[in-house]
Amino acid sequence: MGIHMSIDWLQFTPWTALAGGGLIGLSAGLLVTGLGRIAGISGIFAAMFQSREPGNGWRWAFILGLLLSPWLLQALTPEVPVFPEFEITHPRQWLVLAVAGLLVGYGTRMANGCTSGHGVCGLARLSPRSLAAVSIFMGSAMVTVALRHLLGGAS
């Protein structure tokens, strides 16, 4: 049995994915060259509540921008739904989402970064520590998805 790989061409959207990535990179670039800060969402979100240092306002402003962004997109493209339809077929799925959030919150504090801090900023500044983090969380996420398929736990 060889390694089998199949690409889901129907879902493949390279151009919007690339353009969206460019915007994410632009935001991270603005934040580091203007404010001297790392655009790490888990870190900003955590420090927003916990930091006692003065000058915490930029964190609240950044998070506010994230929260408002779907409304801006909706205003720019009123005819396109901003979020996908979702269907919760079993109440257990809410529990899975809450537990997943708990693991992500705990894990990203422990590892001091998530997809943005380690994945975008860390890799962009060629940090070996971030490369290790990204390899591990991507690997762990891929194994989790594969195990769920094996165990028959669809969605």
């Binding site: 899975v96 537990v99 997943a100 959030g101 708990l102 693991l103 992500v104 705990y106 894990g107 990203t108 504090r109 422990m110 590892a111 001091n112 998530c114 997809t115 380690h118 520590r129 290790a132 983090a133 990204v134 591990i136 969380f137 991507m138 690997g139 762990s140 996420a141 891929m142 194994v143 989790t144 998805v145 769920r148």
Partner: peptide
């Protein structure tokens, strides 16, 4: 870093 990233990946994959 290692353990935290493993936990994050599990939550992300779920």
């Amino acid at each position: 870093l290692v353990l935290g990233s493993v936990l994050f990946g599990i939550g992300w994959g779920l």
